[in-house]
């Protein structure tokens, strides 16, 4: 099977990879670039565990082909903290127990970051609808939603 050479930027670093035509961006991140923080829960775009930001747009990495990722800028969970300085969302999830098992957490955090970049002061309902694409089976969403609202407040300096 003919492979395609792509170059892409992930979290500020340049990478290149040889990808098979059927491989998704998620496969590229996990299997080619060894960036395993982005998780696969379904590979059909229904669970949001592989949420990443591609050229500023939130999307499921499983729904984009690797060959389509030529030249794009991707933000993943690995790029969220600045060194050991956690993003306010990460801090809030730790402090208010916004995670239990942690498998959905990378996707939820990336999706929440995309929300707060568009809307720094969301209502609880807006957070719930924005995160409706991210399945969590442990928390019942309560503390996860509260953590996002607390981080938003913190980021607004309120």
């Amino acid at each position: 099977m003919k492979k395609h050479h792509i170059t892409l930027n992930v979290n500020g670093d340049e990478y290149d990879a040889l990808v098979e035509p059927q491989q998704s961006l998620l496969d590229v991140l996990r299997d080619k670039l060894m960036l395993t923080g982005t998780k696969e829960g379904c590979a059909t775009g229904d669970c949001g565990a592989c949420s990443v930001i591609v050229d500023g747009v939130l999307q499921c990495a499983c729904l984009m082909l690797g060959v389509e990722a030529q030249g794009v800028h991707v933000e993943t969970i690995e790029g969220m903290a600045q060194g050991s300085d956690l993003h306010p969302l990460q801090k809030a999830f730790l402090e208010f127990n916004g995670l239990q098992c942690g498998i959905c957490t990378p996707g939820v955090l990336v999706a929440a970051k995309a929300l707060l970049e568009r809307n720094p002061d969301p209502t609880e309902t807006e957070v719930r609808y924005w995160l409706a694409g991210n399945l969590c089976r442990c928390t019942g969403y309560d503390k996860l939603i509260q953590s996002v609202l607390i981080a938003a407040k913190e980021m607004r300096g309120a």
Binding site: G37, L86, N97, G102, P106
Partner: peptide, 17 residues
């Protein structure tokens, strides 16, 4: 804060796959 939380919010935690 749970000690395993840090790795889980940064993507460093190693799950089965």
């Amino acid at each position: 804060i749970k000690h395993d939380g840090w790795d889980k919010v940064t993507g460093a935690a190693k799950f089965s796959s």
